[in-house]
Design a protein around this nucleic acid. Structure first.
Length: 365
DNA sequence: AACCCGGGGTC
DNA sequence: GACCCAGGGTT
């Protein structure tokens, strides 16, 4: 039974697998990088980031030698920035403690920052031919349907059960191909909506397919509602046509990225008052708030924001990094060297579309 | 176990 | 809009 599953799946995989960049290498480093980028991120999104990243850091030594700003600039827009910081930190560990070689056993490789159960199993099976079964969103979907598992996939108990099934199915020969095959099936055939069961090599033994339950398996309990915040930021321009940007602390959300200073609107406060309060708290300056530059919406995984950006001019004080982060005055040509989160990046794009020679004329225009 | 962490594609 | 994505870290 287990033999049939892996045999039919591998046959299908060798005929139908996509030609992906990380499938053209045996390098544990390159496979590791791909697996970190692929966490919670689609293949098509990852590919250009992967190519640029490896071009910049061809070996683990190059990555270990890089500075964090370089790494985050290449990660800009990919999200979950702690992945980039952790990968960088782990590369230093590989160089300093493992002589530049990615560890090839489970307990050691999971000591590296950013490598959990999934990534450990993926790298060990794909790069080192070790028999460790991966369990990701694809595997969960394929196996819950195949075995007709109707329990809530949010629960740890269900995930353990799925891990046990996967451990039982994975063959001694070609464990890396097997893992990739299950994920490939989940990504291209056994999809969340409208799965292509007529193309599936496992449909004849699939409980969900036979019972017409592919729309209800896997079951996931409802997510809780997410809040919506109003964020107001200041575009502070000095006499040299430079904008003030602030570096977020490493341990914060979006840590290591830059932003326009500002913060969350409190109830009973106007957006203008929010800007003035936040800039006084963060920078120790008083500002005049002029016209609004842009307003945009952005969705994170756990909340939504509307970002309001206002032109500001300092009336009292010199900006100091009171909340601990570094501050920098940058021209519009220098600003692009810094990594920003998406919402801020969108603002910067809008700034570029206007005149980049004189920012001050936008104030009160 | 619960919660936090981005951004993008799909339906 | 809701859901999902080659998950991991922290508490």
């Amino acid at each position: 039974m287990a033999y049939s599953f892996s045999q039919q799946l591998l046959d299908w995989y060798y005929k139908n697998k996509r030609d992906l960049p990380w499938r053209q290498t045996d390098s544990p480093y390159e496979i590791w990088v791909s697996e970190i980028m692929l966490q919670q991120t689609r293949v098509e999104t990852v590919i250009p980031y992967y190519e640029r990243f490896l071009a910049a850091f061809p070996t683990v030594y190059d990555l270990a030698d890089a500075n964090q700003q370089q790494v985050l600039k290449l990660w800009e827009g990919l999200g979950y920035y702690s992945r980039g910081r952790n990968l960088h930190q782990a590369a230093k560990m590989v160089v300093d403690h493992f002589e530049g070689s990615i560890p090839s056993d489970y307990n050691t490789i999971t000591e590296l920052k950013g490598i959990g159960p999934y990534t450990a199993a993926a790298v060990l099976s794909i790069a080192f031919d070790k028999k460790h079964a991966v369990v990701d969103g694809n595997v969960i979907r394929v196996l819950t349907r195949y075995y007709g598992i109707e329990e809530d996939i949010r629960s740890g108990k269900t995930k353990k059960k799925i891990q046990t099934f996967a451990d039982d199915l994975i063959p001694f020969d070609k464990p890396g191909d097997f893992n990739q095959a299950v994920m490939e099936l989940g990504a291209t055939v056994c999809t969340p909506k409208n799965p292509l069961c007529n193309q599936c090599p496992l449909s004849s033994d699939c409980v969900a397919y036979q019972a017409v339950k592919t729309e209800t398996i896997p079951y996931k309990s409802p997510a809780k509602k997410i809040p919506h915040h109003q964020i107001a930021v200041g575009l502070i321009v000095n006499q040299q046509n430079e904008l003030l940007i602030a570096l977020r602390p490493n341990d914060a959300m979006l840590g290591g990225l830059w932003e326009f200073p500002g913060g969350k609107k409190e109830s009973g406060e106007s957006l203008t008052q929010t800007v003035q309060r936040e800039l006084e708290e963060e920078l120790g300056v008083k500002v005049d708030v002029f016209n609004k530059f842009k307003e945009l919406k952005h969705a994170y995984s756990h909340f939504k924001i509307t970002l309001h950006a206002y032109w500001c001019v300092i009336t009292t004080g010199n900006p100091k990094p009171i909340s601990g982060q570094e501050l920098r005055w940058v021209s519009l040509s220098e600003i692009d060297q810094h990594p920003f989160p998406k919402a801020n990046k969108t603002l910067i794009e809008e700034l570029h579309q206007m005149d980049n020679s004189d920012l001050t004329r936008f104030v009160n225009s």
